[in-house]
Design a protein around this nucleic acid. Sequence first.
DNA 1: GCCTTTTCTGACCGATCGGTCAGGCTCTGA
DNA 2: TCAGAGCCTGACCGATCGGTCAGAAAAGGC
Lengths: 195, 195
Amino acid sequence: MARAVSETHGEILAAAARQFAVTGYRGTSLQDIAREVGVSKASVLYHFANKEALLAELMAPAIAMLQSLDDKLAGLTGAAAQEVAATGFVDLAVRFRREIAVLRGEFPELLCQPAFMHIQEISDRLRNALAGYSDRPSAQIAALVLLAGISEACAEFVDVPDDDLRPALLTLVRRAVEPVDAPQPQPPTTEDKES
Amino acid sequence: MARAVSETHGEILAAAARQFAVTGYRGTSLQDIAREVGVSKASVLYHFANKEALLAELMAPAIAMLQSLDDKLAGLTGAAAQEVAATGFVDLAVRFRREIAVLRGEFPELLCQPAFMHIQEISDRLRNALAGYSDRPSAQIAALVLLAGISEACAEFVDVPDDDLRPALLTLVRRAVEPVDAPQPQPPTTEDKES
DNA sequence: GCCTTTTCTGACCGATCGGTCAGGCTCTGA
DNA sequence: TCAGAGCCTGACCGATCGGTCAGAAAAGGC
């Protein structure tokens, strides 16, 4: 068959992105991807050294953006770090919904593979930043819930346009994150309306 | 060997719970579970009809609690529904951290299996309740982010005691959820949702 | 003692996985 | 015209998966 100077490479990548997001990395076989593109499994392995290499190329842009967010956070503390982490991660999650969905579902094994080992550290730093570098458990918990939830939500709302999703998420994060050094409206004692 | 009137059944269940939570349902083989218990794979399949039956028995208590929460939500609307959904789901997530972690990671395929088909509907209703039955996208998004994030967070903080985790999550949810009939800064256009 | 029931096992099955390999096809430039 | 590069394939490999089955080993009532 031999198509015009390999658009096949890109087609495989696109099909893999689609299927990984739905079925997961482990749940998608090379055969599945090959079938969708209309080539043989051997052809997939001609274009990509192995399954992991295919995943790595797929994730590269998202990882690059995550890395650059990590760099931007390097010099910041407190509320400034929170704000940059919030806007940066929301942007990233909205733009790379599918890629993040893959990472989300298969954390334990994927992060053991050499190409993705540093991601755990980066996302730990991101969580710390979103918690305003507070070591209060409640701040850490809130940050983790938000990061995880946003990853999930973006994968779920595939059909919501970016420009609707982004502000909604950003508003949510700003409301939900535990403030650190901003002047707080009430003392941390329980001035509760519920109990 | 033939142990005293099968504690083996329970041991298999416990080992499966541990491994599913770490490696996922699909990522854990019957061989793995058998090895941890110290029996043969065939023995696992003597106590459980098949892998899915093992999972179903493991999930039963969590699903029962989810079902009862669903029942409790049946007659409620607005802020009352939000509050019950919030406390109920936080309780459930804290108590059944491991079980929820399994469901979380392997949604698409697990929910296709007959034993779990109705869970998707229940969790949709739960999300709606947490959104105060508002159809504003931002309310729906916030609810989904919170539900997903909490599931993830509980699985992550395995070593945090229940009594520390629960209030932290509850505070977060109450702060993050979009209020429906509480006094709002902007005039509510759609006060009446479904009557 | 013996017989039945419960518990457990090794050997085996078909299916599927990721990956290899030798070779065929088409295009291109000399 | 022909050699070589790029692209693609079917056949095949070893490993692992969930699951079956005949029968051994132990437990318990008689």
